[in-house]
Design a protein around this nucleic acid. Structure first.
Length: 364
RNA sequence: UGGGGAUUCGCCAAGCGGUAAGGCAACGGACUUUGACUCCGUCAUUCACAGGUUCAAAUCCUGUAUCCCCAG
């Protein structure tokens, strides 16, 4: 029987998860801190890149252990390298191989933090797994569905990366940072028992590529060749050589190595012909998109066109749109054209502050 | 080995005797759970080279080099 008062907290050793654990302890939960060992890269460890990290930092085990001691909760470091490799790293490599831009955090949430870790929690008898994400999760009394709502701290809201979670997962998840209005409040609490840690900067890179060189990561870990190809304009004229499609994402301006007298942006990536199409900023805007692998949270699904808002990239604003199921895919039509619709990225739907659902943008 | 035109930052390009605009690229920083976008900052004591005329030249003159066009 699972203990509803028992919770496993994913501890990165950073500010957010530390405060999450602390809050739960204060609330009276039986809290266990767990640091997930996710990835090991000999290349980077030799290069001393693993010393400072973020949400999934590979080197913060000791920080996590220390704060658990300070909070007064048990701590375990557990190995999740296998599942992480299969569900996050392999997906990441595969996406680039296919000319897409992946979002590994979303995959990690779905398969590692709220699946593998949740299983581990159940093995330990805990009903809940908790993290330091900024999002609200609760059960709607009327419908019985578990709903995700944007965090109070709007600028830190992380619901975009949670659209893929199922009802089965959500009922076992706690996110105690949901009520904080700012990151500063969270830091202030952290400072009460660990000043040094409370000043850690926010994470901002792919956790398994802490040197920022994801192309180098693909070279070392990928099972495919990164091949030079040609840049084309939107008319089909050859413009020059590119260094392999993995180097580019839709909307990208920097690093093209070509000059045209005006800024040029990546408009399309064609993995089949190894082509990268460049165009003006205006050419990067699209009014519609198609998405697959749809997951709904706010409701079970839609059976007719549904008006809501959508966010097509983590750092962007939501935009009004109408979504509709067409042949097993979701068709999204925006009121206004959106910049850099990127295959592989998630499109996440919102209705006011509620997370409606989302899917993966495809090239069509 | 005859005429004509050109030569300014990696690319494009202002300047036309008064002491080197700008755009693109690049680099550095901010922002960022995606090397995206965006923003901020840096980027020719020097104008193909050598002389000359001027108080003063990238700008005028004279050679030299390279390129282009038209004539052989």
């Amino acid at each position: 029987m699972l203990d509803k008062n028992k919770v496993i907290v994913g501890m990165s050793g950073g500010v957010d998860s530390t405060v999450a654990a602390y809050q739960l302890k204060q609330m009276g939960y039986d809290v266990i801190g767990v640091n997930m060992r996710l990835w090991q890269d000999d290349f980077l460890e030799e290069a001393h890149f693993m010393n400072d990290g973020g949400c999934c930092s590979l080197s913060s085990v000791e920080d996590a252990r220390r704060v658990c001691e300070q909070i007064g909760i048990p701590f375990y470091a557990l190995d999740f390298k296998g599942v992480f490799k299969e569900t996050v790293v392999d997906y990441f490599i595969e996406a680039y191989k296919n000319g897409e831009t992946p979002n590994p955090c979303i995959a990690c949430n779905k398969h590692v933090k709220f699946e593998a870790l949740l299983e581990k929690a159940h093995q330990l008898g805990a009903y809940y797994v908790a993290t330091g994400h900024y999002a609200k999760i609760y059960q709607d009394e009327a419908t019985g569905r578990f709903i995700v709502e944007k965090a109070e701290a709007v600028e830190k809201d992380q619901t975009y990366a949670l659209y893929n979670l199922t009802q089965a997962q959500l009922q076992h998840i706690l996110m105690p940072l949901s009520t904080f209005k700012t990151k500063e409040e969270v830091r202030a609490i952290a400072a009460q028992f660990d000043v040094q840690m409370s000043k850690k900067s926010d994470s901002q890179e792919i956790c398994f590529v802490p040197d920022q060189d994801y192309v180098g990561f693909l070279r070392r870990n990928g099972d495919f060749e990164i091949i030079d190809g040609d840049f084309y304009d939107t008319e089909g004229n050859k413009l020059g050589k590119h260094q392999g499609i993995v180097n580019y994402t839709i909307g990208q301006r920097k690093g093209l190595g070509l000059t045209f007298g005006k800024p040029m942006y990546v408009v399309d990536i064609d993995p089949e012909f190894n082509r990268v199409v460049l165009g003006s900023n205006e050419a990067v805007f699209k009014k519609e998109l198609w998405a697959k692998a749809i997951n709904f949270i706010y409701m079970a699904g839609i059976d007719q066109p549904y008006r809501c808002e959508a966010k097509i990239r983590y750092g962007t604003k939501t935009a009004p749109c109408i979504i509709d199921y067409v042949g097993g895919l979701i068709h999204v039509v925006f009121d206004e054209p959106q910049r850099a619709v990127t295959p592989g990225q998630a499109v996440v739907f919102y209705k006011d502050q509620y997370l409606v659902g989302g899917g993966t943008i495809i090239r069509k």
